[in-house]
């Protein structure tokens, strides 16, 4: 059992609060951008979430109070930011400075400042895990860690559900990009500003994280090192031509220890990568055991929280 502090109260943070008890953990602090609730004896999840829904803030304490609460594991679930990855990076640093563990749902610190995170971790008794940053509920990083990153030659996959939904609908209905995007926005599958998803940035961040893991510290990757193309220039006619030939187009991200690429790719209809709708899929290429295909839900509050709590369970006891 661990004592958890959750920073960031979006869909993922709320689901972590909701599901932590089911995994046998106590939530001792929750913070959003406006306030915090702290109780070293353990917060009652239902009450915290009700208050968040009713009043917008989880509690009256200052948000920073959550960072100094008596937790074992800090769950960092604030929105992903690029560049200096703040404020997420500072939250990670403060927890490690206190010799506490960190579990990230926020991609920023491990995509943009991987070496800084690892350096802080090396000086701490705490560890940093970040399964939830790649492929939602799919155990991608856990699988890589089990086999050992030095025995993985490449990871490729469909890592953005919004882009995959748009491509799937375009191919199935013969509609153009703008039309399907509007539909996806109405359904809540795409955000009002979908650029992060459809321009390939989100998939690229996930692949950058994978490349950082595969490189084992030999080289650090950031978003600037990725070659990225999105799906906005893929017309319906291209999907039609692919379909005539038994193929389809998917936004595929590829990561090795040397390279990160994201772009629309032709894949056979029968390929494991030709997943439909918002599902994600990841292929892990191993040196001695061929390819491992993993697919599942790549986004969503309970799905991502499930990956977060799996990480919490993997952490070693703090001395």
């Amino acid at each position: 059992m661990s004592r958890i502090a959750v920073v960031g109260c979006g869909a993922v943070g709320r689901s972590v609060v909701d599901l932590a008890g089911d995994h046998g953990h106590d939530v001792v602090a929750v913070a959003d951008s406006q306030g915090a609730a702290v109780d070293p004896a353990g917060l009652e999840a239902g009450a915290v979430l009700e208050r968040k829904a009713a009043e917008g803030a989880v509690g009256d304490a200052a948000p920073a109070n959550a960072l100094t609460a008596p937790y074992d594991v800090l769950v960092e679930a604030t929105p992903t930011t690029l560049g200096d990855a703040e404020p997420g990076f500072s939250h990670v640093a403060r927890a490690l400075d206190r010799d506490r563990h960190v579990v990230l749902a926020n991609k920023g610190p491990v995509a943009e400042r991987y070496a800084d995170v690892r350096e802080r971790e090396a000086a701490s008794r705490g560890s940093v895990l970040f399964e939830a940053t790649v492929g939602g509920a799919i155990p991608v990083l856990g699988t890589i860690d089990d086999y050992g990153p030095e025995r993985i030659t490449a990871v490729r996959g469909v890592l953005n559900g919004t882009a995959n939904f748009v491509l799937t609908r375009m191919a199935a209905e013969g509609l153009d990009y703008e039309h399907v995007l509007a539909e996806a926005q109405d359904m809540g599958v795409a955000e009002a500003d979908p650029s992060f998803d459809v321009e390939g940035t989100d998939a690229a961040l996930k692949c950058v994280i994978l490349a950082n893991v595969l490189a084992c510290g030999e080289r650090e990757f950031t978003l600037d090192d990725a070659t990225v193309a999105g799906i906005t220039r893929v017309p319906g006619s291209a999907l039609d031509l692919a379909a005539e030939d038994g193929r389809t187009v998917r936004l595929v991200g590829e990561a090795t220890a040397d390279e990160v690429r994201v772009g629309p790719r032709l894949v056979p209809d029968t390929s494991p990568l030709a997943v439909s709708g918002t599902r994600n899929v990841v292929q892990v290429e191993t040196t001695h055991a061929d390819g491992i295909d993993l697919s599942g839900r790549g986004a969503g509050g309970p799905e991502t929280a499930t990956a977060v709590l799996a990480d919490v369970g993997r952490l070693p006891p703090l001395e």
Binding site: T153, A154, V234, R265, L266
Partner: peptide
Amino acid sequence: LSVVEPLTEVSR
């Protein structure tokens, strides 16, 4: 022009 490349599978 944009190119949609085939996925080059790692040789198995």
